[in-house]
Design a protein around this nucleic acid. Structure first.
Length: 419
RNA sequence: CGGGGCGUGGUGUAACGGUAGCAUCCAUGCUUUGGGAGCAUGUAGUCCGAGUUCAAAUCUCGGCGCCCCGACCA
């Protein structure tokens, strides 16, 4: 991609209406455009990061047997009345609207009802189970107060998977697999070392749910870590009884702020009951399906990575989700050879399947370097008079500033080996 | 939803009730060209609506919007 055609522009100063680091940097670097409080549009750079995150999650969900589909955003009132979650006194952050003919509809704020309702048509025998449908979709929540940039928006993009199992054992087996898949997602997204499986409140059908909490001061949640055992509990279940049950001692716990980047929980028959979601077992007996729910907010994950991995110059993307792997920065020169060389390098990288952003703009070196640092692409290759004289390309890593001088014939291998 | 702060060119900021200024961005020209260059010229602004006043960016009231703390987060 040529930077001149990217539809993106950096700013010297952050927007005054954003305090959070994630939104501030993402807007300044040209990833996002703010629509209103809690509502953001994703510019080409931002979309590329989201797509990369989506690919990682899709891969991990497919590995544990997930089957991707897409549920509608517009939701039927009658369906939600079955589970008693339509009324505003029960769920106060609905976005609701009216049809021309007078009917009332809501915009999805979660997916349990949609899935339970659909699956009822497709589950009738034990042979139909277990099944693990999921989707990526936009979710709408009419938050009284959106905050922290893209960490808590009124519209956000998430992945939600629901498990439909024959019994508790089958459910628990999958639940454990989902934990591993989630760990893989956060590891691959670059925040694995700081993200902890955390005990959290489980609602009415299980003692606990599990959250994946990424440690950062920008977090809204408070968690307590037992460094010996690796057990982590959310403040919401930080009680004498729970600590005792988990074998934890209060004085050994460390308090941290963290962002909830994922949440998995057992639903039992909370939804299969009202939707009459049953199957016949081998003996012909009718049984209720056991459900589980597994969510990840993609925008929140993106924002969390920015909060954790940025430095004073800008964003530092991990290779796995960076919008591009390589940033070619051509230092504008009167020597036409520089442009020719940069163009040729760009073609070579594109032909080799390397995701590359080429700064082909006419601008001064300082401006281009600063933009490059701000945007945060993992590898930068500078093409300039200076480099031409040496017959080598200068490759600089965004992460630690390490510099390599490489001959043209070695450059693709070097890039491909960098993870 | 309770509390606090704030709305001025695209962006960031000034202006005692009395000529809306600076920087940046953008456009044009010349000079520059490895860490946000210099000079010149130009375009562009007081959130909306009432009120007070000879006069309102400034004071009053209402509305809308934004940020932060708290509550909430299925």
């Amino acid at each position: 991609m040529r930077q001149s055609k990217l539809l993106s522009k950096t700013r010297k100063e952050g927007p005054k209406d954003e305090v959070s680091k994630n939104a501030n940097l993402l807007i300044r670097a040209g990833y996002l455009s703010k629509e209103m409080a809690g509502v953001y549009s994703y510019l080409p750079l931002g979309l590329r990061v989201m797509n990369n995150i989506e690919s990682i999650i899709r891969d991990e969900m497919n590995k544990i047997g997930g089957t991707e589909m897409k549920t509608s955003i517009i939701q039927n009132k009658e369906v939600w009345e079955k589970s008693n979650r339509w009324d505003d006194s029960v769920v106060d952050n609905w976005f609701k609207t009216k049809l021309k003919n007078g009917g009332e509809v809501g915009l999805s704020f979660t997916n349990e009802e949609a899935y339970a309702n659909i699956l009822r048509q497709y589950i009738s025998s034990y042979k139909d189970l277990p099944i693990y449908p999921y989707d990526f979709k936009s979710i709408f929540r009419n938050e009284a107060r959106s905050k922290s940039g893209i960490l808590r928006g009124r519209e956000f993009y998430w992945k939600a998977l629901y498990s439909f199992s024959k019994d508790e054992n089958e459910h628990n087996e999958f639940y454990e697999k989902a934990k591993e898949a989630y760990k893989n997602v956060f590891q691959r997204a670059g925040i694995g070392d700081l993200t902890h499986l955390t005990f959290a409140s489980g609602g009415s059908f299980s003692k606990f749910s599990h959250e994946f909490q990424a440690i950062t001061d920008a977090g809204e949640d408070t968690i307590y870590i037992d460094e010996k055992s690796g057990i982590v509990v959310n403040k919401e279940v930080y009680t004498e009884e729970v600590l005792k049950g988990l074998g934890l001692k209060k004085e050994e716990l460390v308090e941290k702020k963290a962002i909830e980047v994922g949440n998995i929980f057992s639903l039992g028959t909370r939804f299969s009951e009202p939707f009459d979601l049953k199957y016949k077992n081998e003996k012909g007996e009718e049984k209720l399906v056991i459900m589980g729910s597994y969510g990840i907010g993609l925008g929140r994950l993106m924002g969390t990575v920015v909060e954790i991995l940025s430095d004073d110059k800008g964003i530092v993307w991990p290779v796995s989700i960076a919008p591009f792997k390589v940033h070619i920065v051509e230092i504008t020169s009167s020597n036409t050879k520089v442009k020719e060389t940069a163009e040729k390098l760009y073609d070579t990288l594109v032909k080799n399947g390397i995701e590359v952003l080429y700064d082909d703009r006419e601008a001064r070196a300082g401006e281009k370097f600063n933009d490059s640092d701000l945007i945060g692409i993992p590898m930068r290759i500078v093409v300039s008079d200076k480099g031409l004289e040496k017959g080598e390309f200068e490759v600089k890593l965004r992460k630690d500033g390490e510099i390599f001088s490489l001959k043209e014939e070695n450059i693709c291998d070097f890039i491909n080996e960098y993870k």
